[in-house]
Design a protein around this nucleic acid. Structure first.
Lengths: 382, 382
DNA sequence: CCGAGTTTGTTCGTACGCTTTACTAACAAA
DNA sequence: TTTGTTAGTAAAGCGTACGAACAAACTCGG
């Protein structure tokens, strides 16, 4: 009743209206805040958490009590060292209390998956060859792989994360994945119905981007480019995935690069990014080239990626681009060439801080990204 | 104490942790929700608002009481028509109760400004020639223009919105605006100190993008490209501005377009987007061309814009691009050529719904965008 | 005309979340 | 032992939203 206009002005800036917010939502948010603090920093006292979150010690104690009761947190003993005052009781996430199943459906020859702990450490792996399966058969294979992994878990499962090729909507339905013959394949519902666990499904490049954010040390804005049989990207803006209209964000494989022609692509256009970068074509070119020819080929391919990305870098003010794909192809000359091309085609002064690098997460990036999705959806942690 | 894991899972998805959230923040959010509902739909009863927001009638009544007391809402009489039940008391925003000052510093010859009502209708205009002023002189001129407009307001002023060229940070400091000789010019602080009113400062293209979102009917994801003496863009993703690293998002003027050379740019590179599109160059080319030559020139310029935007469209899954600039140059052939180029250089099937059009807001777009910023910051409305 | 049914908006009591204040516990330093 | 500091808890209070119940005001059918 006594809200002043000034207060309203200040608070209006913070939140933009979409749906109603109740106090219990605030509670859930603050709960995640506590978890997040411990997830990242580890081994903090209630008072420490209160200081870093801005919540009072009382509130933190209350939230921590809940989280301990639910098994997410444990007290790990008193803080070492001699300081005045009552010694602090350290808390940490119980990183072994729950496990996550991460599934990667993006390889062209096999479905791969893993059991991970809450830190994203891979505890077990499994793999099933696709052998040309498509449609419902492919979906069944993915479910089987997941069942196998679930039977190998040794702790309650927080959820199942799936990184799928193609276009995936927010409900976890694969709208279109030509290689697997999927159209409107309701992966989320199939997994959920079969296993009765929380399930998160996303595009493989998006999952990879989340992995790089969660485990690879990337912050804020990030573009992750996956180069394999196709070329796709995932964009993270302010830590949030970008989906775009019709969930088609990141579909850069069939963007025409340059104004000097190029090979004809399966899509009908000439000079698509995939005609320059897709690994089967790169390998074919490289197999019939001498060492210096190899460098030329990789330099040219990297240059083409740079030409395609330069406008995106400029438009988004991107400062971090990460590549995922076969390191032997794109790890050296290719990356350097792409970086140099972007640098030469954009305003230098605007982003002296642009970085372009290979991911350090290797081939596990999608599975680990799938784990990040589960952590994020389940605990609000990443 | 009795929060179940299931509830936590659901709530974790909705909000991602950044800072603590208190019940009063939720209140502010719901408050904006009520305002937003009335701002858009107008003439609704408390019960109507309750239905559309999901809040209860009780809560809505409480919020409305606050907002009436503060002068934002008024009761406009009973609903017409005969229906069973107690007649509804209609509410509306008091769109004349407050005014907004919007300032556009982006034109190369003059600073322009206006007094607007809460609907974004322009009530008064003012303009001051720049006459080559730079640095502190230019800032003083902007303040004078604002002072003049403030003296012409006929209602309490909700705030001052400023659209400035160059790179603007979140604190409203113009980090770099070469044309005005500004480097780290603290516009927000200067306006705030002089007038003691809420002030919002943003890049002109960003302001324009917000105008298109607020008044031009654009939804969700939007890229607004401003073409004038320079070329810049503003990106709205999910209704939120994209800033990028070093606040450099949208700086596409000096991205090299194509792989076939181009004119040398003032920045030192060859073939920058501005060398193809900047209006002085376009006008110079057009002045010495016959009618069919004019079409060729505009077609080529549009094509270059399309070449630059195609990768951005693909990467972001953009579905709406709006152009702002001199309609006589870029309104016809140019737009068509740009659209056709993008369509030909991206995956057709992914965005049959791509639209590329001129803004309908004309030269007032930045001032009206500045008003949107004030509305958004002040009331959470847009 | 009157009662039944409907819709609106308010009042009252309740549940929840976080804060402030005040307390106890446990330590170091003088 | 005294003083001061820090950690964690308990109690009380305030703000926010909700459900239940109600009065007001209308339509409609008999």
């Amino acid at each position: 009743m006594t809200t002043t206009r000034r207060q309203a002005f200040a608070s209006g800036r913070a939140l933009r209206p979409s749906t109603k917010v109740l106090p219990e939502h605030a509670r859930g948010h603050n709960r995640s805040l506590v978890l997040q603090t411990l997830y990242r920093a580890g081994h903090q006292s209630r008072a420490d958490i209160a200081r870093t979150t801005g919540l009072t010690r009382v509130t933190v104690s209350d939230l921590v009590a809940d989280l301990i009761a639910e098994g997410y947190l444990i007290e790990t003993g008193q803080r070492e060292g001699s300081r005045p005052g009552k010694p602090a009781i350290l808390l940490d996430m119980d990183r072994t209390a729950f496990q996550i199943v991460g599934i990667d459906l993006s390889a062209h020859d096999a479905f791969r998956g893993a059991v991970l702990d809450l830190d994203g450490t891979i505890l077990r792996r499994a793999e099933l060859a696709i052998d040309g399966r498509r449609g419902a058969d492919a979906a069944a294979l993915a479910l089987d792989l997941t069942g196998t992994l679930l039977s190998q878990t040794t702790a309650p499962v927080l959820g199942i994360g799936v990184g799928s090729p193609g276009v995936v909507d927010l409900a976890g339905t694969v709208l279109r994945a030509p290689n697997l013959g999927w159209e409107s394949e309701p992966l989320h519902d199939a997994f959920s119905a079969r296993f009765g666990l929380p399930v998160v499904v996303a595009n493989d490049a998006n999952a990879a981007a989340l992995a790089e954010h969660g485990f690879g040390g990337a912050e804020g804005d990030l573009m992750l480019v996956r180069i394999g049989h196709g070329v796709g990207a995932g964009l993270l803006i302010g830590g949030v995935l970008l989906f775009g209209g019709a969930f088609s964000a990141g579909e850069i494989g069939h963007v025409v690069v340059g104004t000097d022609g190029g090979d004809l692509c399966a899509c009908g256009k000439a000079g698509c990014l995939e005609t320059w970068l897709a690994t089967p074509r790169l390998e074919a070119q490289l197999s019939s080239a001498d060492p210096s020819g190899r460098i030329d080929i990789l330099t040219e391919a990297g240059k083409r990626l740079g030409i395609a990305l330069a406008p995106v870098v400029g438009a988004l003010g991107l400062s971090e681009i990460v590549l995922s794909g076969p390191a032997e192809l794109i790890g050296g000359t290719f990356v350097d060439s792409a970086f140099e091309t972007i640098r030469r085609r954009t305003s230098l002064e605007l982003h002296g801080d642009l970085t372009l690098r290979m991911t350090a997460l290797g081939d596990d990036i999608v599975m680990r990204g799938a784990a990040v999705m589960v952590l994020s959806a389940g605990l609000g942690v990443s």
